[in-house]
């Protein structure tokens, strides 16, 4: 069942064409990642799907009555606005205390209810935003670069949490990332975007696609060297085994191809 889709979508900012001919669809229960370099229109696409950007051509079609849980990139809460986490969860729809506590517990920030929003760390804030999105019992979660500002360990933990949430609630997940290897294990499908959809498929297929290589340059010798360097670097500093393994796999694939 298709929850949300873009059909021939184009978005312009003034004279600038940000997106053109974008056809994407998200089915119930799947995790889809939109991948693209800076300025490729990833955030614009997400905003258009939610209805924050008008379509210059084409259309966004949502299943009637679709419940969307939106997690923005980063929330700047001015310290002049006193706002506890608990109060924030009741915006704009008021929720009960038990429900709010359960949502915070689920996203791993139980006990932060009385904390001020403006003093949360980046990781805590993302989890609070996710908790708020979950309170609306979404059929699809839409996240715009949810792990920006998190370190790699925090990033991995956040993606694991997303996968758990998907399994428990059955909600589809549509998210934006700029980095394939961190979302590789989590995503069912990857959409490569650079003003238009360049390529689409499972993470493995996309990472081998020439369009993807062209966009991210991972197929060239220079980038490969850079990748190996990263790999060595990680190894030297003895970061988590999962991470190391991951890099290794990726470099290996590129070499094979």
């Amino acid at each position: 069942m298709t929850l949300i889709e873009a059909r021939g979508l184009a978005v312009r900012h003034g004279a600038l064409s940000v997106l053109r001919d974008v056809d994407i669809a998200v089915e119930a229960g799947e995790i889809v990642t939109i991948l693209g370099p800076n300025g490729s229109g990833k955030s614009t696409l997400v905003r258009a799907l939610i209805g924050l950007e008008p379509a210059a051509a084409g259309a966004v079609v949502r299943r009637p009555g679709l419940r969307i849980g939106y997690v923005p990139q980063r929330l700047q809460i001015d310290p002049v606005l006193p706002l506890t986490v608990r109060r924030f969860l009741s915006l704009p729809r008021r929720v009960g205390d038990a429900e709010a506590a359960a949502a915070l517990e689920r996203t791993g920030v139980g006990g932060l209810g009385a904390r001020q929003m403006s003093v949360l760390s980046g990781g805590q804030q993302q989890r609070v935003l996710l908790a708020r999105a979950l309170l609306g019992r979404p059929e699809i979660l839409i996240l715009d670069e949810p792990t920006q500002g998190l370190d790699q360990i925090g990033e991995a933990a956040f993606y694991r949490l997303l996968e758990e949430v998907r399994q428990e609630s059955g909600a589809a997940v549509l998210m934006v990332s700029h980095d394939l290897h961190v979302v590789m294990s989590t995503s069912d499908r990857v959409i490569c975007l650079n003003g238009h959809v360049c390529c689409e498929g499972t993470p493995k297929v996309v990472s081998a696609a020439p369009e993807y290589r062209a966009l991210f340059g991972h197929g060239t010798g220079g980038a490969l060297a850079l990748y190996r360097h990263e790999h060595d670097h990680d190894h030297d500093h003895g970061e988590g085994p999962h991470h190391h393994h991951h890099h290794h796999d990726h470099a290996h694939e590129v070499e094979d191809a």
Binding site: R47, I50, G51, L52, I68, Y70, P72, L75, I77, L81, L83, F88, L91, P92, R93
Partner: peptide
């Protein structure tokens, strides 16, 4: 608090 969150809601 946030215009985007409001719009999305």
């Amino acid at each position: 608090v946030n215009e985007e969150l409001a719009q999305a809601a």
